[in-house]
């Protein structure tokens, strides 16, 4: 299966759009080779600014550039792009609703060997809670490119969560990204698996395993975390009566929390959560870490059965 890291797709998409749209300015904090903003820097050198290892000032500068009329993309690792800059994103970007796009790479535990200090498992929670912020987590390279196109063309603060490692290509070029709309990847009637990022691939594998055991599982790519697709969420709660969420993020405040809150309000049903259980990451190979932290297809299968048992 063809694989591409979402950060690669981000750099390529940004460079392509940047050539067409002169308003786009890109900031990085000395990680452009890793975040792939280097591709943009090569294509549009006059509109790329390396802010050095000073993420806070990168965020403030992004706000100023947006006030000056630019569409600003700022990138770093999720740990720093969100964690280090958080209060500046809150007060200087979201509060005044400025046109700044935070595209953070190396999110989640699949950062791997760098260890827990670099594995952001809180960024969805942190961004989702901010008024005016939209939050997207692409499942593959194609969706990443479509999201970047949407972000460049629409006003307001947005957060794009990207991964380090290669992810299987799930969509073809005909895919259309619409904020507030999930994509049903596979239909099913016994249990619905809502996943984002690299967990979409795992959810598809889990659905295949469940199918072999006679269980019909739907798989939903929940890539637009804010705005959330409440209609699809409620429809599948209605149809299946059992839900599993899967994300490479803490089980607190992320996709699972968003789905659960939506369902508690509108259509309560059993929900099980696959994610990092309130603990930090550590060094290891990405595949080892996913297994050690319970983020694999096998874990989704287990949780699907648990959710169904609670119907």
């Amino acid at each position: 299966m063809e694989k591409i890291a979402t950060r690669e797709a981000y750099g390529n998409a940004l460079a392509a759009i940047g050539k067409e749209n002169e308003k786009i300015v890109v900031l990085d904090a000395d990680l452009s080779k890793s975040t792939k903003t280097s591709v943009f820097a090569k294509a549009c050198p006059e509109r790329f600014f390396d802010m050095g290892i000073a993420e806070s000032n990168m965020a403030g500068t992004a706000a100023g550039l947006a006030i000056g009329g630019n569409t600003v993309f700022m990138s770093s690792f999720a740990m720093f792009a969100v964690g280090r800059c958080y209060e500046i994103i809150r007060n200087s970007i979201c509060y005044p609703k400025l046109n700044v796009k935070i595209a953070a790479t190396h999110a989640g535990i699949t950062v791997g060997e760098d260890g827990g200090s670099h594995q952001s498992i809180e960024d969805i929670a942190l961004t989702r809670v901010l008024p005016n912020m939209e939050v997207f987590v692409p499942a593959d390279g194609v969706e990443t490119a479509k999201m970047v196109q949407y972000m460049a063309a629409n006003e307001g603060p947005m957060y794009l969560r990207l991964g380090r490692s290669g992810q299987p290509v799930l969509f073809d070029e005909s895919y259309e990204f619409i904020p507030g709309k999930f994509t049903v990847m596979r239909d099913g009637g016994d249990v619905a698996l809502f996943a984002c990022g690299l967990m979409v691939g795992e959810a598809l594998k889990a659905a295949e395993t469940l199918h072999e055991e006679g269980i019909s599982a739907a798989v939903v790519n929940a890539s637009s975390l804010k705005p959330l697709d409440e209609a699809t969420t409620v429809a599948y709660a209605q149809k299946c009566g059992a839900i599993v969420t899967a994300e490479e993020h803490s089980v607190i405040g992320g996709l699972g929390a968003a789905i659960a809150q939506c369902l508690v309000r509108q259509r309560p049903c059993p929900v099980e959560f696959v994610g990092v259980e309130d603990r930090f990451g550590q060094s290891g190979r990405p595949d080892e870490l996913l297994a050690a932290y319970g983020l694999t297809a096998a874990h989704i299968v287990e949780k699907a059965k648990a959710a169904m048992a609670r119907k």
Partner: peptide
């Protein structure tokens, strides 16, 4: 002050 720098850069 950081924002002012961004405006100046723009």
């Amino acid at each position: 002050f950081s924002i002012a720098g961004g405006i100046a850069l723009s």
